[in-house]
């Protein structure tokens, strides 16, 4: 049986790398944020995790913000606010 050569249909990625800062070693006194994707129970998950971070890591403040809905990106204003006020932000994703 003969052979044929076919092209790969998969798209290729071309991107510049952005360095992600390391997680802080000390969380004492820091402000953490939760970007709520509005899916059910993320608010409870964020609340429980925020409490743990206060009690066990000495986090000073927890900021909780909700996107408008689960299926569209957070507004630039919301992202800017969290970037300005928080040391680390936990962004809810998926379900």
């Amino acid at each position: 049986m003969g052979q044929i050569r076919v092209l790969n249909p998969i798209g290729v990625v071309k991107a510049q790398t952005v360095a992600v800062p390391s997680l802080p070693q000390s969380w004492s006194g820091r402000t953490v944020g939760f970007l709520d994707n509005t899916k059910s129970n993320f608010d409870r998950l964020a609340g429980d995790l925020g409490t743990m971070l206060r009690e066990r890591y000495g986090v000073a403040a927890v900021v909780h913000r909700r996107k408008a809905n689960a299926s569209t990106p957070a507004s630039p204003e919301l992202i800017a606010e969290l970037a300005k006020t928080c040391d680390v932000v936990f962004a809810g994703s998926a379900d």
């Binding site: 991107a15 952005v18 992600v20 129970n41 409870r44 998950l45 429980d48």
Partner: peptide, 26 residues
């Protein structure tokens, strides 16, 4: 990675989250 962000820390919890009781969320 395709948007230029590599090694972003991910915390993955058991699915589903929706519809679960408070103790399961905890």
């Amino acid at each position: 990675g395709a948007q230029g962000v590599s090694a972003l820390p991910l915390l993955v919890v058991e699915h589903p989250l929706g519809g679960e009781r408070p103790e399961a969320i905890a």
